[in-house]
Write a protein that binds this DNA or RNA. Structure first.
Lengths: 258, 258
DNA sequence: CGACTACTTGATGAATTTCAAGCCATGTGG
DNA sequence: CCACATGGCTTGAAATTCATCAAGTAGTCG
């Protein structure tokens, strides 16, 4: 394992699985898009908004992965969250203020655009929509708190296990899995490191160890969980209580679409 | 410095300052309390709600400090946020679910209680209140993201500087300072460590270094910032953009008070 | 083919933890 | 008033985790 032979074997496996599922499907969000008049396509690597700039819009991710991050002066980067389809983006307590973080597409992505001025209007007389925004933001807060515990108080092995488990269950819960044990997984080891406060080198060693223990495999664009119980055990997580914030879609979005 | 002589000198100073300001004042929140029919007193060390239990209320802190934390099986603790007067507590995306963290009073504290069922009702037809909840939660998310960057990507010295600066400016912004350079500061070094993913021992050494550089002093219940510019420099922060989440008080709370 | 990115591995070093001891102020019971 | 325990802080020495530096392997893309 870890040898070239292992690598090509796994990569073939990955190719086979991915080709069997040519497109990422987001059944629920089809609805959202139907009611949303203005959508934007964000190619991989492009920023949706950047730290320091003002942003007059909210976004709801409809396809692809988007990362939120902060960067320190000397280039150190902290990834704050991974936004998947259904995630609300860009909400700030003070509408006129500068964004405190950057949102960058990790894969080609699509977002529904909601102008901020439209938001206040939508809130008025529509408690259901208001609640959806509150719930989505509270969900994102729970995710951030979980990440804080990962970074602050778990070892590299525990943190990596926990992060992968959280992303895995989140994708699976949305029906986005390739099969019961595997999901598309566009993160590099550097992304994992930047999310957990580790270096890519150390993530590499950590993943190797988890792989050798036959717990999971990550790479080549997919993540497959071989031993979910053991993964949860290492992560120190009760798998039932893993949060993922989704601003549920449906006809409600019609009111807010630009 | 660090000698017994230094300690007693500083402690005398602390005593003198604190006695000059016998009570913590929260001018704005007087209003809130007037409109809130049900308040609760939470003595230091007591839990407002605990991880795993259901909680049918929201709370707004009206006095004192409350910490939010998660604890791993083996006792490792991560402090997620410090709740000060004006902070909204207990909001969850799914009303019926278990709390994912614990809220514990760090000092004697008081909170205004808002039953959850009252919340939905208040939201209906009152976009202003809805917006206050959204803004407060989005603010807490910003704070969590800042903490994540502290823990993940800053050195101990940078992280401690940044945390102290954030707490300091937050208290000062609410007019809660004892004077321009000092605030009440009930955290132990262990609290600081648990907020930043460090041990109390290492926090001790880090504080010592900052103290020897004449940048700040913490201890004996107060924090005084001697060199704000240098502190911000070390923290790597543009001091203007430090977030603190407050659910603004005023007549609005009347609608929600139990 | 060269340049590039992601990943891998080894050797070395630094930041931080762990373990251990002691100090000081506070509180408590005899 | 003393003996004793306790909590928060301090300091030193050793151990560990993780970062840094460096080099090499594939695969991909032009």
């Amino acid at each position: 394992m870890g040898s070239p032979v292992y690598q090509t074997a796994v990569q073939d496996h990955a190719d086979a699985i991915i080709h069997a599922f040519p497109r990422e499907t987001n059944p629920g969000l089809e609805l959202a898009k139907r009611f949303t008049k203005r959508c934007e396509t964000v190619p991989a690597g492009m920023e949706l908004y950047a730290e320091g700039e003002q942003c007059g819009n909210l976004y709801i991710v409809t396809s692809g992965w988007i990362i939120l991050h902060q960067i320190l002066e000397d280039g150190r980067r902290q990834i704050l969250d991974f936004a998947l389809p259904g995630t609300l983006l860009g909400l700030q307590p003070d509408a006129g203020n500068e964004m405190p973080h950057t949102a960058e597409a990790l894969t080609d992505a699509e977002v529904a655009v909601i102008p901020l001025n439209r938001l206040v209007e939508s809130l008025r007389g529509n408690a259901d929509i208001a609640w959806r925004f509150i719930a989505a933001t509270a969900g994102a807060l729970n995710v951030a708190y979980d990440s804080l515990t990962d970074v602050g108080r778990r070892t590299a092995r525990e943190a990596v296990a926990h992060l992968l488990l959280r992303l895995f269950t989140r994708v699976q819960a949305q029906g986005g899995g390739l099969d019961d044990a595997t999901i598309r997984f566009p993160l590099t080891q550097e992304h994992i490191g930047d999310a957990l406060g580790l270096t890519a080198v150390h993530v590499c060693r950590t993943l190797k160890s988890l792989r050798e223990d036959r717990i999971m495999q990550a790479g080549f664009g997919i993540l497959t969980v071989l031993d979910p119980e053991e993964l949860a055990e290492i992560a120190g997580a009760n798998i039932g209580s893993i949060p993922y914030p989704v601003i549920a879609d449906g006809p409600h979005l019609a009111h807010m679409a630009a």
